[in-house]
Design a protein around this nucleic acid. Sequence first.
DNA 1: AGCATTAGATTTACGTGCTAGATTTTTGTC
DNA 2: GACAAAAATCTAGCACGTAAATCTAATGCT
Lengths: 407, 407
Amino acid sequence: MTDGPEAATPSTHLLRRLNADRVLGEVWDGEPVTASGLMAATGLSRSTVLALCRELTERGWLVELDDARAAGSYTKGRPALRYAFRPDAALVVGVDAGQHRVSAAVADLHGRVLAEEAVHLDPASDAGARRDAVRGAVDAAVARTGRSGADVAAAVVGVPAPVEAAGVPSGERNPFWARMNPGLGDLLADRGWDAVVENDANLAAVAEAEHGGGAAAYAALLVGERFGAGVVLDGALRRGPRGAIGEMRILDLVEGVGSSDGLGALARDEARRALARGDGEPSTLARVPAARLDAAHVLAAADDGDPLALRVRERLADRLSRVCAVLAGLLDLDRVIVTGAMAPALGAVVERARALLPGHLHDPAVEIVVSDLGPEVVRAGAVRMAVDHVRSHALDRDLAGVGPVGA
Amino acid sequence: MTDGPEAATPSTHLLRRLNADRVLGEVWDGEPVTASGLMAATGLSRSTVLALCRELTERGWLVELDDARAAGSYTKGRPALRYAFRPDAALVVGVDAGQHRVSAAVADLHGRVLAEEAVHLDPASDAGARRDAVRGAVDAAVARTGRSGADVAAAVVGVPAPVEAAGVPSGERNPFWARMNPGLGDLLADRGWDAVVENDANLAAVAEAEHGGGAAAYAALLVGERFGAGVVLDGALRRGPRGAIGEMRILDLVEGVGSSDGLGALARDEARRALARGDGEPSTLARVPAARLDAAHVLAAADDGDPLALRVRERLADRLSRVCAVLAGLLDLDRVIVTGAMAPALGAVVERARALLPGHLHDPAVEIVVSDLGPEVVRAGAVRMAVDHVRSHALDRDLAGVGPVGA
DNA sequence: AGCATTAGATTTACGTGCTAGATTTTTGTC
DNA sequence: GACAAAAATCTAGCACGTAAATCTAATGCT
């Protein structure tokens, strides 16, 4: 990349690259390391490790800390050089481009959010307005870090639509999808960043990766207006050729479900309908204007013991348990993580759904849990994926001179 | 392995191994190659290629052909040494241990079946009888090749039950499953072979790998007594933590399906019930004794235009289309391959199911096709998987002296 | 202060794998 | 028989890695 001998002996360089990658992986998320530590971790010899560290330092990925035995792990003898990963060597951008809200974050290479910006957006906005919103939010967030856009290495945008393998929008299939992803990838790639557009549920799944524990098979289930799942099998996100794995239109065919409407939509509609019917049963929900009644009201009322709300909640639990049963039954999942903006309010619903599960699955090995990542799951997943992208392409890139030099 | 310098420099040996593996992969399924051909294919230098070929020849994987320019591709110059893969350097065993039939095949490393043996078996047989049947079929098939069991490198057995990741039977969950896999893995491992037990539908999916064309996402659907699918996503078979991906118990919850009964069971039961009701409608099927009436009769009668059989066939198509819709809708499949013993008779059913599909899927990108691999799909998949196993562990093994030396 | 101790850093020698280019062998053609 | 072509072989030489001896910095003990 700089001026090293270019591919004189391709095969042997491969080996070097493999080892460099291992070392980088070792430091990326961890504490500063000494050469001896790396020797133990990688099985390489001291000379090799030192050479690799020198190279990675020159390339801008590591800094040499000279604070000697500051780590305090030992007292005698010569203090070791310590190499530390530079999480601020580059920036990443993560965006949740939702239907009525765009939220952007700029993070360092540890995924720590340094700045954020959110803007509201009319769900009916046209392509141009949507692009402007994304551009605006991203630029504002980057500006707020006090660093240059040139320091950004990669950006990931989540959209509420399937995204085909190569990041190509599947717009021809569905005009709604096209509107949700009006060339957002190119928009960011024009900045000179590596840009990826990804489905929102898939990003939620990425965000839940740690939370998913050691689970090699799980789904992140977005439950708001429509159901949508991001599916991880054998430890990796599965998209499908059309990006449609976890698309839940098929719920139309499932008994007791009948549509892909999410729990938010269902709660609202059921409650409104029951109130409109006026079964005579008194409900505190009757005091809320029908047009403003939403899932949050219903769930709160249920917590207060309101009978109508309790009936609706039971319906939600039933539907959720069936959706989880279909997902887990076919995909042999260890876990379904209920996530999205309304997830925190769904404790009781999930608990009840868990209880209903054995009625639908012969051998329910799946565990339904509520995400604790809060409303910015998708954005967090976008940041995470951007970091992973940089990580996996790290050795193709030279950072020397980019960003602040200090640790 | 033989007596080379043991791991003097592990890292550099890794490189050698990588290249050897590439060369082996190049020859495995192809024509004999010259050094020049390999140079072009691998990008390695002549010296390296020749050294690798020499090594692989010593190890028993390749033979040096000296029939000069027999290939006729060129006429001038010194004739190249040609190296050919030795498909008979080792044997593999593939077994379909079905409910009422055990079928074993012995094949070479190209997957060409050299000998086979099938035995019938009472579906109610206990563990011992089932083990004996497998042992008997395998030994007979091996004997028929005229070669020793020591030449067998790997064996794969398909069973009609989920198999957990490590080949562990999931017997505690279900006594039927335990009976279907009474320690068959150990049985074959005791012969000194690498033994793998795998679900039958998964093996069908492996067998359909070529037939699945370039499809990176497809399912092989067994449709006989019960539905069961082997699922390939991102080019690899997906099993799930409990080996239950593609288990179709969940069909209980699908509208218009209601059970995981396969098309064979459905055809039989529907026809019998209709005849018993005696709707008055004359049907040629009435001439078949009820206890012997099965799917084959029904499908044949439908082809002859029998109205009752046609009604049943329509039901089969409807059910099949729904099952495919669920699979493809959730998994974003390119293709569902209908397979199993009765597949060849299902042309009309599949055609009709294709037509019904748009009624269930908004955007049916999936293609339903009938397998043309015949009744031994599972066994073929077992052979295929065994070959792949040997291929991927090839460099751990020394074949020198094993098997016939000639090509 | 001097000295052994400890552990990291450096140097040197060497093995292995690969490449590149010159050389030789084997064939066919004129 | 000279020449051209294709392939194998030989010879350097380089890159990467290991191993072991040597060097160097910090510490505790006397």
